[in-house]
C-alpha cells in the first residue's frame, strides 16, 4: 500500500492491566510535515510514540511508518525512524563524541562515516567544545541535545521527538527549533509531543490533542483556535469562590489561579456576560478581550484535569 502518509495509525488501543491508556487512536502525519501531539500528563503520548517506534505492541488497531507495519515489519521500520525518548538514553561513562560514534556504528555506518557524522552533529548541536569531555560534565541541556543528535545519526526520514525541549533554556530551545525547521525543510517527517503550546504553534503543520485515550481534536493551529470561538473574554476575579461562580455562570475554562476565559462570538455576548456578572455581584477585577491561543484550545478540549495540573 503506497500512502502519502509517513505515519498512519488506525484504531490503536493499549491498556496497562486494568488501566486503559489508548482506547481508539487514529492519526495521520503527511510526509515532510510536523505533527505536534498535545495532551495532559498521563494522556498516553509516550505510549503512542512507543507503539509507533516499535517499542511496544498495541492491543488492537494498526499502525504503519512509511507503509511498513510497526508490529509485523519492525526491522524495516527501525531502519526508517529516529527516536528521542522523554528520558535521555546515553552512556554516562563515555564522552559525547564516543557516544555518537558508538551509536552511529550501531546504525551500521562504517567507522569513518560514523566519526564524520559525529563531528558534524556535534557542530550542529553546539557541542563541539565539550565533544571529548565525559558526560558527567554535561549540563541537562547538553545531554538533551546529545540525545537528540543520537536519534539523527542514521538520517532517518521519520523522527519521533518525545518532549524534546523539556528542561532546555530559552536559547537552547530556540536553537533546537531552528534545527527542527531545517530537518523539516530537508523533508523529514516529525511527530513531536510537547507540553509547550507555543512550541506547537511555532513548529507544527498540524496539531493533535490526545485526551481520554482518543484524539479529541486535530487540525492546524488556526483551525483549532477557531474551534474554541473567535474571541476570548478573560475575567480576573477577586477570589476562589468568585472563580467557581464565574465558571458555573459562563461555562468558561479556568486559565490559572484567578482568571476565567470564555469564548465569545459577537460583541453583544460580551455585553450580556458583563451585565450578567454585574447583576450577580461577581467581584470582577479586570476584563480582557483577546484572540484564542493554544492554551485556550488545550484547556477547553482536555477538560479540568489539565487545568488542575497547571
Amino acid at each position: 500500500m503506497i500512502s502519502e502518509h509517513a505515519i498512519e495509525a488506525r484504531g490503536l488501543r493499549k491498556s496497562y492491566g486494568e488501566h486503559k491508556v489508548l482506547s481508539d487512536v487514529d492519526l495521520k502525519v503527511e510526509r515532510g510535515t510536523l505533527l505536534a501531539l498535545l495532551g495532559p500528563n498521563g494522556a498516553g503520548k509516550t505510549t503512542l510514540v512507543r507503539i509507533l517506534a516499535t517499542l511496544d505492541t498495541p492491543d488492537g488497531g494498526t499502525a504503519a511508518v512509511v507503509g511498513r507495519d510497526v508490529v509485523t515489519q519492525t526491522a524495516a521500520v527501525r531502519e526508517l525512524i529516529g527516536l528521542t525518548s522523554q528520558d535521555a538514553a546515553i552512556d554516562e561513562m563515555l564522552t559525547g563524541r564516543e557516544n555518537l560514534v558508538m551509536m552511529g556504528r550501531l546504525f551500521h555506518l562504517p567507522k569513518d562515516a560514523a566519526v564524520a557524522r559525529a563531528t558534524e552533529l556535534l557542530e550542529v548541536f553546539d557541542l563541539a567544545d565539550a565533544a571529548d569531555k565525559p558526560l558527567s560534565t554535561y549540563s541537562g541541556g547538553m545531554r538533551r541535545r546529545l540525545d537528540i543528535a543520537v536519534s539523527l545519526l542514521g538520517s532517518p526520514p521519520v523522527l519521533f521527538l518525545d518532549e524534546p525541549t523539556t528542561g532546555l533554556d530559552p536559547r537552547s530551545r530556540q536553537a533546537l527549533w531552528e534545527t527542527i525547521k531545517k530537518l523539516l525543510a530537508s523533508g523529514t517527517t516529525i511527530l513531536l509531543t510537547t507540553q509547550y503550546l507555543d512550541e506547537a504553534d511555532e513548529l507544527a503543520d498540524r496539531i493533535a490533542v490526545l485526551d481520554g485515550g482518543r484524539i479529541v481534536a486535530e487540525g492546524t493551529a488556526d483551525e483549532l483556535k477557531r474551534q474554541v470561538g473567535t474571541e476570548r473574554l478573560v475575567l480576573r476575579l477577586a477570589d476562589a469562590a468568585a472563580v467557581a461562580q464565574a465558571l458555573r455562570m459562563t461555562g468558561g475554562t479556568r486559565l490559572d489561579g484567578d482568571r476565567v476565559s470564555v469564548a465569545v462570538d459577537d460583541p453583544g455576548q460580551v455585553r450580556r456576560l458583563l451585565n450578567q456578572a454585574a447583576d450577580a455581584g461577581l467581584p470582577v477585577l479586570s476584563v480582557q478581550l483577546h484572540q484564542p491561543t493554544l492554551d485556550d484550545v488545550f484547556l477547553t478540549l482536555t477538560g479540568d484535569s489539565a487545568g488542575e495540573a497547571k
Binding site: 502519502e4 509517513a6 503527511e30 510526509r31 515532510g32 510535515t33 546504525f107 551500521h108 555506518l109 562504517p110 562515516a113 557524522r117 558534524e120 552533529l121 557542530e123 550542529v124 539523527l152 542514521g154 538520517s155 526520514p157 521519520v158 534545527t179 531545517k182 530537518l183 530537508s186 523533508g187 523529514t188 517527517t189 503543520d205 498540524r206 492546524t220
Partner: peptide, 25 residues
C-alpha cells in the same frame, strides 16, 4: 500551512545525502 512533500526525505542538517550503510548478513 500544510505542505505536501512527496520527495524522498533524505538526511538531517548538513548530512551527506544517503549515508553509506554497511551491508552485511
Amino acid at each position: 500551512m500544510t505542505t505536501t512533500t512527496l520527495a524522498t526525505p533524505t538526511a538531517g542538517p548538513g548530512a551527506p545525502v544517503g549515508l553509506p550503510k554497511t551491508q552485511s548478513s
